[in-house]
Design a protein around this nucleic acid. Structure first.
Length: 290
DNA sequence: CTCCAGCGGC
DNA sequence: GCCGCAGGAG
């Protein structure tokens, strides 16, 4: 089964959200920033952070001129703050090695910090109009259902997914809009839980025609958060983000007072990840300040 | 495969 | 309370 481009594109033109990073006048850098922020993060939470970020740092070199600490602060509480340091590192590489121009081809994009299989193709497609398959979690789910007739995409199989989506892509200038529409359908209609099949624009869907078979494999165990090292890292970063100057060990201890072993483990991992640095006098700060 | 933040929705 | 989110790296 396939997905008729006209059907999907008509629905997208009518019902797609008007998201700012879909403005065709945007620079490749502004689109790249949106893709970093959208990694594992819902659109609604990215909107305000992206808007202020690209206004403050409109080019890679402008971003590179700031400190990594400023990048981490501007990242706010989007989550996965290593993305902020990777985006900052990515800006430096583009400014220093690519004449401040975001690379066009997928292989070069893949060499950039924080740019993986999804982001490289998203930039090549949405910023430069190339008809490469853009495969995120939404696309994998939509294709699994509409084309293959199964409830879930299963374990990531990048090569197979890319070939499958490439076969669906219209081979013309509609390709970027087709990919954006696939993602939009997965985000707003063909959702992981509670898909709204009654309003689906696709006239044919293998999953529906097979009677909505349940997933074959049991769902993966949910990620815990409360009590994990990730929560402790978040607390420690809260302290550092809030302080304009380096903080003492004692100030970090107060952020997670009851488990010294876990606190030290979290702090060590932050130092290892480059999200925190030790100053000359033994205090702690965000990277690139103090 | 595991870790990585944070939050809104059910 | 748990689920899932425009993923990437080790």
């Amino acid at each position: 089964m396939t997905i008729p481009a006209a059907e999907l594109l008509d629905w997208y033109a009518r019902s797609g959200r008007d998201l700012p990073w879909r403005d065709p006048a945007l620079s490749a850098w502004q689109i790249l920033v949106s893709e970093f922020m959208l990694q594992q993060t819902p659109v609604a939470r990215v909107l305000p952070v992206w808007t202020s970020w690209v206004a403050r740092w409109p080019t890679p070199s402008a971003t590179a001129a700031a400190s990594a600490a400023d990048a981490v602060r501007a990242w706010g509480k989007l989550g996965y703050p290593r993305r902020a340091t990777r985006l900052h590192a990515c800006a430096r590489v583009i400014a220093d090695e690519h004449a401040d121009v975001v690379p066009r081809d997928v292989d070069t994009l893949l060499t950039l910090p924080g740019v993986g299989a999804y982001t490289a193709r998203a930039v090549a497609c949405f910023a430069y109009g190339q008809p490469v398959p853009v495969v995120d979690t939404n696309v994998r789910r939509v294709v699994a259902r509409a084309v293959r007739g199964v409830a879930e995409a299963g374990s990531p199989a990048a090569v197979r997914d890319h070939a499958e989506v490439a076969a669906l892509l219209p081979d013309d200038a509609r390709a970027p809009r087709f990919s954006a529409a696939l993602m939009e359908l997965g985000a707003t209609v063909c959702t992981a839980r509670g898909p709204r099949c009654a309003v689906c624009p696709l006239s044919r869907c293998a999953w529906r025609e097979r009677g909505y078979p349940a997933a074959a494999t049991p769902p993966r165990r949910a990620q815990r958060y409360a009590g994990t090292d990730r929560q402790v890292r978040g607390r420690l970063l809260d302290v550092l983000r809030a302080s304009a100057s380096p903080v003492r060990q004692h100030d970090l201890d107060l952020a997670w007072p009851d488990d010294e072993v876990q606190r030290n483990r979290a702090l060590s991992s932050l130092l290892r990840d480059g999200l925190v640095q030790r100053t000359g006098d033994g205090r702690f700060a965000l990277p690139g300040e103090g």
